[in-house]
Every structure is written in structure tokens, then in C-alpha cells.
């Protein structure tokens, strides 16, 4: 490397030519600020999508109406019939139990099958204002679908009995789900059926309730 190199002021070129001060036009500053604020706001807003601890244990719900076949990964369900009765008579092998409702029993017939493995389900009524009514214990479990096994290959129909005041049935839903285990699994499937009741219809249906509904169990 030689005089030639020394002569050619190639390296000092950078230092010698001072960088022109970077002039950012005002509009770009403003746009950048706005975009930055928008991004920050979006990030903060995205935090509202984070599930709370309570929501994390919520089930995955498949919704539908009467007679819809709702499929989940653990079971498929359809709501076949809804009836009302004041008394449910459970005929057992050696005895008969009469169960009287406070007002009326809502009797829900559900058909179920399982895609892969045998399973058991339970049900509850979710009213429009979020109240959750478990199946009544006045009617013994053996008369309901609650203690039956659902198996692959065929549909099994059965009943659930609810003691819900008729004025709470407007907008109510019937939910069929696997019972919660002690150390609940996450993302358990459930199916939710809209009964399609408004206030007059619920009242009319409950008013036309049967006196006695007989069931074996």
C-alpha cells in the first residue's frame, strides 16, 4: 500500500463529509406520533382480550336451538322435546315416588351420542339473567339421563327435570355438558340450546302443564 493509497482520500471521505443533519419534516413527525399512539393503544386494547382466570376454566360452548344436532368433540346432543308437569311420578321396580314441584317441572328430553368414547353428561338451565338451575333433586337421578352412559354408535334419549319458575324461562337455555371433575379440565365442551321461549309462551306452556308425568326409573 503506497503513496497512491495515501493520496486517495478515500477513508477520510466519510469523516470529512459531515452527515447532513437529518431533517424530518413535521408532517412525518406527526404521522409517526399518531401511528405510535395508535400502536400503543392497540396493544393496550389487546390486553382486554386476555382471558381472566375465571374465563379460562369456561367450557367451549356450541349453541343451537330445538332439534339442532350440536356436535362437540366428546358428545353430540339434540334437544328433542320440552314439556311441563306439576308432578313427576317415578315408577321404580317396587315403589312409586311422586315429586311435586314448587310451581311446575320443566321436563327436557335430550338425545345424545358420543363420537369416540363412552361418557356421561349433566344438564342445567341457564336463564336470561344468568341464573343457573341444576336439575331438581326431587326426581331421583335414576329417572334421568344424568346417570346413564352415552356410547358411540347409537343415540340415547333421556330426560332431565328442572324446577324453574315459569317467569324465569323467557330467553332461557338448556345446557348439556360433561360434569365438572374435581381438578377440572380446561376447554371442556358443552352444548347450549335456546328454548325459544318468550314470556307469554313460557307462561302458556307452564300453564298447560300436565298434572302427572309418569316415568320409569
Amino acid at each position: 500500500m503506497s503513496a497512491a493509497h495515501g493520496l486517495v482520500p478515500e477513508a477520510p471521505a466519510a469523516p470529512l463529509r459531515p452527515l447532513p443533519p437529518r431533517r424530518v419534516p413535521l408532517w412525518r413527525k406527526i404521522v409517526g406520533g399518531v401511528v405510535g399512539i395508535a400502536l400503543v393503544s392497540a396493544a393496550v386494547y389487546a390486553q382486554t382480550f386476555v382471558l381472566t382466570a375465571d374465563e379460562k376454566s369456561d367450557p367451549l360452548t356450541v349453541s343451537g336451538g330445538m332439534h339442532d344436532e350440536l356436535r362437540t368433540s366428546h358428545f353430540s346432543a339434540r334437544l328433542e322435546r320440552v314439556e311441563f308437569a306439576r308432578t313427576v311420578r317415578v315408577k321404580k321396580q317396587y315403589s312409586t315416588d311422586d315429586a311435586k314441584a314448587d310451581e311446575t317441572f320443566m321436563i327436557v328430553k335430550v338425545g345424545l351420542t358420543a363420537p369416540r368414547r363412552p361418557t356421561q353428561v349433566t344438564s342445567f338451565v341457564l336463564t336470561a339473567d344468568g341464573l343457573r338451575f341444576e336439575p331438581t333433586d326431587r326426581v331421583s337421578l335414576s329417572a334421568t339421563l344424568g346417570d346413564k352412559w352415552i356410547q358411540p354408535g347409537w343415540w340415547r334419549s333421556g330426560l332431565f327435570f328442572f324446577d324453574v319458575p315459569a317467569d324465569k324461562l323467557a330467553g332461557a337455555r338448556v345446557v348439556v355438558a360433561e360434569p365438572k371433575t374435581l381438578f377440572g379440565d380446561d376447554y371442556m365442551p358443552e352444548t347450549s340450546f335456546d328454548l325459544g321461549f318468550d314470556r307469554p309462551k313460557a307462561r302458556q306452556m307452564a300453564g298447560a302443564a300436565k298434572d302427572v308425568y309418569e316415568v320409569s326409573g
Binding site: P115, R116, R117, P118, W149, Q151, P152, G153
Partner: peptide, 12 residues
């Protein structure tokens, strides 16, 4: 105890 078919379905 379960009965199982080739597709992985099981019965009680």
C-alpha cells in the same frame, strides 16, 4: 375394560 374398534372408538 373397554371394547375398541380399529378406528379408536370404545365401548363400556
Amino acid at each position: 375394560l373397554y371394547l375398541a374398534d380399529k378406528a379408536g372408538r370404545t365401548w363400556m
